[in-house]
Write a protein that binds this DNA or RNA. Structure first.
Lengths: 334, 334
DNA sequence: CCTGATATACTCAATTTGAGTATAAGCGAG
DNA sequence: CTCGCTTATACTCAAATTGAGTATATCAGG
């Protein structure tokens, strides 16, 4: 299948970081502009911080990641978690002759507090929902959802070559996007992105097909949602899905908040990430009863109304019960 | 494990599969005997199926994995999921001079039905709890838990060099093993293994220290729990933890069951994996009300008592609501 | 001392959980 | 055939949790 020449083909390993912060009720991700390795045309694109793994370097992958994130962005990462290793061939070995090099990308999720200083060099905080706009349901489904996205999906479904395939497409769309009676499941971020990619509805799909030499009509009006270079948008989707899942059963939100915060701030961060709005009183009951937070006596008076008490995360909770996270509604197993 | 010399240090990538099945209420993992790459002494050890990644080979990592699992074990994998990529330096480059080669292992979880034919070649199904005996709490904490494990942990805690470190050790032990008032959290399998490794209570820890040239008294009476080669026991722990977490919110158990099964069979599989016993009537209520299964008219009469109805998994559930898995008790977010 | 905010407390019905009891339906011994 | 054992399945009931409100508190500003 592949042509081997001299020396066996090499493997290169890169580390990618999806660094997430939330400011002003908006989840953001740290990006760098750069040439898109998957685009032979050579435009620039938004990229996640990326660095090669030096085989002789640090002892652990984590350390390597932290190291050059610091170098590229002057940011000291706190919470870091491995996400997924992407290794499909032909993903981004743009220039190299086939079989010469294989690139593996180990993607990490990191949570940060968006310190002002964090954006050294050319790093920029960008809104996550600029890349994945269909994921933000806080004010109901975004406008374009029923107007553009669903019709496009349906065109794709109908274009299936046979009945079986058509039914499968319909099922995937139903489950992923909560259509035809299925519920919306906030965690299926990656599934949705993959579906849109497979249906040719994101720009990366066009780009990759063009690179592979497949002719295809350029999409007349691309779906809202900014593309990224390489398969970084896929990584972003993976990260958002992971956060949404994790936030419920491990108290990770606090990594994104200052040491003291009001309950509404906490709620806004949870809402921002999970993409849904929550019932304020019940949310308060949940985090208080769960023992996740404890009041400091202080109050924050810049609320515009009655001043709110400042709370802090009760670290002890990690030692006590099952450290429940900030459970969203409708989670139970029924 | 080939030794390459000449030229910059290389990266090699291996794929490992943790292939899990459940028979007779016992969770099992497929192993191969082999020389332990981490043991210079050269004894043989239980290993997970392992294969190098050929950079020019299959298009995706999944495919590669499936390919040589088939070759090594004659098993066609169904459900496969990426687990984690292990990349610490010095993990298992046993013989190679430092800096010459760096090995990454991408570990996968696979669920199988333990077909009799599956154990071709030298593959063997082994009980998972033979390797991780502290994880099986179905009949209460195993005997050795309070008699051996906890005292050993306490010795380790007390041996901390200073107060701060001592408190941290105590906390980790409390959270991991449900001591001193903390609850047992079945999902923290990896945390527990790492803790035991760090405390020098599993044989791999001794082995690795010896290899690194650190002198250490051989542990007088090692903890129950069979070691594995390389860091495969760590991978097994990762896999079990993932299964336990996932079983609750995605209907993956059915991958381990025959197409038709009684509700008690289903329950036993869930219990086997999660390591706890469940209330039978409530379990039944849960899966039936959740619409996860539907009765076929048939009955299974070899139960020893009243014949049980045979059920089948309702695939449609994947399309409907949030496909809830077989929720264990005490999961809600309080 | 209103009005408009937001914060926080409390209520209440519906649902879900945890832990049982009760009954059904097979088998084998006697 | 019936008793006693076993497992299956149905039903009950209190406790806890959830979902959706209403009520009250406390600030800023006119």
């Amino acid at each position: 299948m592949t042509v081997r020449r001299r020396d066996p083909p090499r493997i290169e390993v890169g580390l990618n970081a999806v660094i997430v912060a939330v400011t002003d009720h908006r989840p953001r991700v740290l990006t760098l502009p750069g040439p898109d390795p998957a685009d032979p045309g050579g435009g620039t694109a938004d990229l996640l911080p990326y660095g090669p793994l030096d085989p002789g370097g640090d002892r652990t992958l984590d350390l390597t990641l932290r190291g050059w994130v610091r170098a590229q962005t002057r940011l000291d990462l706190g919470y870091v978690e491995q996400l997924y290793t992407f290794g499909d061939r032909g993903r981004l070995e743009g220039g190299a002759p086939d079989g010469e090099v294989r690139t593996l990308s180990v993607a990490y999720l990191a949570l940060a507090r968006e310190s002002g200083s964090g954006s050294a060099a050319r790093a920029r905080w960008k809104e996550i929902y600029a890349y994945l706009p269909w994921e933000d349901g806080r004010e109901g489904r975004p406008d374009f959802f029923d107007r553009v996205l669903v019709p496009r999906l349906e065109r794709w479904i109908d274009a299936a070559p046979n009945r079986r395939e058509r039914e499968e497409r319909r099922d995937r769309a139903a489950v992923g996007f909560g259509l035809y009676g299925s519920d919306w499941d906030g965690d299926r971020v990656l599934e949705r992105y993959e579906l849109l990619y497979g249906a040719g509805l994101v720009q990366e799909a066009d780009r990759d097909r063009r690179r592979a030499g497949v002719s295809c009509e350029a999409d007349p009006a691309p779906l809202p949602g900014r593309p990224m270079g390489a398969d970084h948008r896929r990584m972003l989707a993976t990260a958002l899905g992971r956060i949404r899942g994790k936030i419920r059963y491990r108290p990770v939100v606090f990594e994104l908040l200052p040491p003291r915060f009001t309950l509404l701030q906490l709620q806004r961060v949870v809402e921002a990430l999970s993409g849904v709005e929550l019932h304020k009183q019940n949310f308060r009951r949940l985090v208080e009863r769960g023992g996740l937070v404890e009041g400091t006596g202080e109050v924050e008076s810049r609320t515009g109304g009655r001043p709110a008490e400042l709370f802090r995360f009760r670290r002890e909770v990690l030692r006590e019960r099952r450290a429940p996270g900030v459970g969203l509604p409708g989670i139970g197993s029924g």
